[in-house]
């Protein structure tokens, strides 16, 4: 392990870092899946998710406005 990486991980082993992250709630299998994707795919997926959330929020706001009338 490179020195800067080891320092970034606080001197913990790779296994310990993954165990700590999983205990915190990080989905390690999801990260593995992400790493199998190209950088292009990761960015496209993020944009698709952001668009979905924005549209869902806008739709909810429209419903609230309509209900208020």
């Amino acid at each position: 392990m490179r020195d800067d990486v080891a320092e970034s991980l606080g001197g913990r082993s790779r296994e310990q870092v993954l165990a700590d992250a999983a205990a915190y709630g990080v989905d390690i299998s999801l990260l593995r899946a992400q790493l199998l994707r190209s950088v292009d795919e990761r960015l496209r997926l993020l944009e698709a998710n952001v668009t979905f959330v924005r549209e869902a929020r806008a739709a909810a706001a429209r419903r609230r406005t309509a209900d208020a009338r």
Partner: peptide, 28 residues
């Protein structure tokens, strides 16, 4: 590694959550 340094420095709740994920990515 630099992104981890920034997240630890800023240290808001969402940064603390991100730190664990970034550490896992670095390990993987």
């Amino acid at each position: 590694p630099a992104l981890l340094r920034v997240k630890r420095h800023v240290n808001r709740r969402k940064d603390q959550e991100a730190v664990h994920e970034l550490e896992a990515l670095l390990a993987l």
